[in-house]
Simulated scan of single mutants.
Amino acid sequence: MNALDGIRVVDLTHAISGPTCTNALVQMGADVVKVEPPHVGDGFRHYTEHAGEPLLSVPFASINAGKRSIALDLKTEGARNAFWKLIEQADFLVENYRPGVLSRLGFPIEDLRRRNPRLIVISITGFGQSGPLAQWGAYDHIAQAISGIAALGAVEGEPRKIGLPIIDSFTGYIAVIAALAALRRRDASGEGEHVDVAMLDAALKLANQTVSVHSYTGRTPGGTGNKGFRMVPTSEFYPTGEGWIALGANNQAQVEAMLRVLGEEAMLADPRMADHAARVANYDFVRGWLEETLSRWSAEDLETRLTAAKVPAAMIREVGQIVEHPHMAQRGSIQAVDLPGHDRPLATMGPGFPVDTAERHRVPVLGIDGEAILSELGYDSRQIEDLRNEGAFA
């Protein structure tokens, strides 16, 4: 049995943050009905510059497999009536429009919850439902910029964004946590609620330790580049004679073990290497010494030897190198989904933890499940054809 068997989600989301939330819900067993504009669909369907086919980009496929798609033009009366029927049967509505858009479409939050008091509405925005920035638009790099995360990654004064939409994705997972908490409260009270999730809040949650450091010291932490969080040179990225290695020797036992692996135990007698405070105070010396020493090794050999000695370390890999690693296959973290028009399955990540399910999901063609969903709502073939003629449904 899946954790969310019997739970129905109306998915009125697009791009990354909202679909990431509903992606996790479907992977835990929920029936997710994705409502999309006819002919165009979720704009993320068109991100084919990365990979994919028209209306079925691979980025879209990665976070929408397993959902059912219905194409409704919510500006038409017929589509709005069908949407209300969906809402009456739903446990969740997840949406990531700007504040006020749902109301302009004719679905104010209060009306949604009046029509279905058990409904949990998850609203995901850039900056939240209230506050001076509420109407600002946001993409992932905008959230990285305003939250201070881009500044924290600065190198020589130049801000650097993280090279993937990490805030979008993390916001989606914050929304999952919020959804499950709201479902638990509804189990106890019988009442749904409206949950307000913001990308800026999620970004600052990622930077939580830095927020607290600023609160305590009054100082804004500067960019750290590839430095580790403890700011010690024995826990950073280094070039080797072949490849790059990430070292994680943060405490004294790890540093001593690392020096034994390197055959350099004598360095502990150098006062500049003797303890953590000395290594931080003499950063340039320790960094330079490690660069010269590690240049005589390969990253692969170092990874093998250091991890065997219980020192955290890893070669710097590309994504393709790790997804094909036997470790990932053993854990079952990567799932195969069916991509229409392709003979071989598409690899995508599960919910982030192993799940026991035999079901293999497919990526939905725009509107492919529309007739089946309308039939479930009580529409007969004539009424469905009327909706199609009205332009409400495609």
Results as ranks from 00 to 15, higher is better:
Asn116Arg: 15
Thr348Ser: 06
Thr22Ser: 05
Ala138Ile: 04
Ser298Asp: 00
Ile142Gln: 07
Phe83Cys: 14
Ala65Met: 02
Glu303Trp: 02
Gln209Gly: 08
Arg260Leu: 05
Met273Gln: 02
Pro221Lys: 11
Thr240His: 00
Val33Ser: 04
Ile174Pro: 00
Pro354Glu: 07
Arg344Glu: 15
Arg331Pro: 02
Trp244Phe: 11
Ala278Tyr: 10
Gln209Ala: 15
Glu390Gln: 11
Val58Thr: 13
Ala372Trp: 09
Asp187Lys: 15
Ser69Asp: 07
Arg115Leu: 06
Val355Phe: 04
Ala151Glu: 12
Leu93Ser: 03
Ile16Thr: 03
Leu72His: 10
Asp140Ile: 04
Ile373Ser: 04
Val211Ile: 08
Asn389Ser: 13
Ala143Ile: 06
Arg382Gly: 05
Phe83Tyr: 14
Tyr97Trp: 12
Ala281Arg: 15
Pro37Glu: 13
Glu156Met: 02
Leu387Val: 04
Glu88Thr: 09
Glu318Cys: 01
Glu324Gly: 11
Ala257Gln: 01
Ile120Cys: 06
Leu164Met: 14
Met349Pro: 00
Gly153Met: 09
Arg104Met: 13
Asn251Gly: 04
His14Phe: 14
Ile368Ala: 15
Ser103Glu: 15
Gln144Phe: 05
Met273Tyr: 08
Asp11Pro: 01
Asp284Lys: 14
Met231Asp: 12
Ala274Pro: 00
Ala82Lys: 03
Cys21Leu: 12
His141Leu: 11
Ser17Phe: 02
Val195Gln: 06
Gly126Glu: 01
Thr48Cys: 12
Met273Ile: 01
Glu292His: 08
Asn23Val: 00
Arg104Cys: 09
